[in-house]
Amino acid sequence: MNSSEDFHRNENGWQNSVIIIPALLSGSTLVIVIVILWKAFWRKRVKGQEAGERAGDDQDGEWAVNVAGVYEDPLGAPDPILEKTQLPQGWMIRDRVVLCSGHFGPISQAVLVRDGEDRHEVVLKELSEKCSPGEVQDFIDLLKFYVKVCNHHSLVRMMWCQTEKMPMCLIMEAMTFGNLLMCLRESHQGGITDTQGAIFSISEQDVYSMASQVASGLEYLAGTHNLVHGYVAACNVLIHEDMSVRICGLGMASIQHRTGSVPARRAARVPVKWQSPERLKEPNVSEKSDVWSFGILLYEMVTLGAPPYPDVDPAKIPRYDIMTSCWQWEAIKRPSFTDLLKQLQNGSSSADGSNALRATDTLNWAHYLHVAGIPS
C-alpha cells in the first residue's frame, strides 16, 4: 500500500499533467489523454485498496484499511464513544518492551503506574506516527469495536485508550502466561513456570474449564453480536495463572462488525487444518465453521499443543465424543456453542482435577509448523 505522502505526490503529478496538456493539445486528442490519465490514476488507487486487504496480521488479526479516506486532524475533537475510555490523568506508561510489530505499529508489554504505587501490567497496541490518514481512522474504528463488543469476561478487553495525544494506543490487560499454545507446549515439556518460579500443570478439569470459557465467549460473539471469530485456535487464546482465559485474534470479527462481512481473501488465509470442509470449498465463515475450529482447539488442549490430524489413536484422547460432534461433515449437524457449553459444564463435574495431563512424545517447533501447515 502506498504511503499518504506517495499518494499525494502521485495525485499532484496527475493534476499538473491535466494543467499542462490543454496548452499543448486540443480537441479529441485532449479528451483521449485525459481518459488515459484518469484510468492510470484509478488503477493505482485500486492497487492501493488491494494492498490494504493483503496487509499482514498481528495479535488481533488483520484490519481492512480505508486507503481512500481523507481525515484532516486525528487529534481534533474527542470522539464521544472513546471520550470515557481515555487514559485518566496521573497514569504514566512505563517500562515498554516491544513484543512484535503489528499492522498498525509496535505491540509492547508495559506497566501503568500512578503515584508510584498503583501498577498494572498491560499490553499496548500503538499506532505508528508514519501511518496513513486512512489507517488512523481504521485504528479509531478498532478502538470503537473494543468498546462496543469486547465486554465479555472471555474476550480480551480494552482497559483504556489514548487518542487525544500521540502516540495513539490501545491499552489491554496483560495475561500472566500469555499465549495458550506456548503454555501448552511448556506443559508438554514438563510444566508452566510463572514469574515467581512456581510450576503449573494442566489437568483434564482445567481443559474443561478453559474450553467452557472459550465456548462462552464465542457464544456471546455469535448470539449477541452475530459475529464470527474465524480463527479459533490455541494461538488466539490468552491465559492467566488462575487458568482463566481470554479470546484474542479478533481481526475478522472487527472487520465484520464494521462492514457486515469478512473478506473471502482474509478468511482463506487461516491455516487449512483449522478450517471446516465448507470453508475449504468456499471461504465463508459462520458460527458452524467456528464450531469445527473449536473442536480442533479441544484437540490442541488435550494433546498439550500437538498439531492437528497426526497419527494419534482417537481412543486415547479424553472426551473424544465432544470433538467428533464439532467435526460433523454437514455444518447443520454440528452443535451450537450453547449446546457445547452445556456439554462441557456437565462433563467438568466428573473430570480429573488432580493429575496433570502428560504427553510421551516430543515437540519440535519447526516440525509443528510443518505438520500444522503454518508458513514459517
Rank of each mutant, 00 (worst) to 15 (best):
E219K: 13
G249I: 03
G105V: 03
S286E: 04
F145M: 02
L112V: 07
Y220I: 06
E204N: 04
M210F: 13
H229P: 03
P314L: 01
T195E: 13
I21D: 09
P335D: 09
T163C: 12
V123E: 03
C161P: 07
G353K: 08
A40D: 05
V232M: 06
V18A: 09
L143N: 05
I34F: 15
E219Q: 15
I107P: 04
P277L: 05
W42M: 03
P307L: 08
N355S: 15
G76C: 03
R185C: 01
V262D: 04
H240M: 03
V35M: 07
N226D: 10
L25E: 11
F145G: 03
D73M: 11
S216N: 13
L297Y: 04
S289L: 05
G90Y: 13
Q162K: 14
S209H: 13
A267Q: 09
E117S: 13
S325L: 12
M243Q: 10
G305E: 05
H153D: 13
N226M: 02
I199G: 00
D73S: 11
A234N: 08
W14P: 00
I21T: 13
C248W: 05
E173V: 00
L142I: 01
R45C: 04
N10K: 14
L127S: 05
G56M: 10
A198N: 15
S286Y: 12
S201R: 11
H188G: 01
D352I: 09
N151D: 06
I21N: 07
K39T: 08
S26K: 11
K44E: 09
K144W: 06
H103E: 10
S4Q: 13
S293A: 15
A222R: 04
S349E: 15
S209Y: 11
W91Y: 14
Q137T: 14
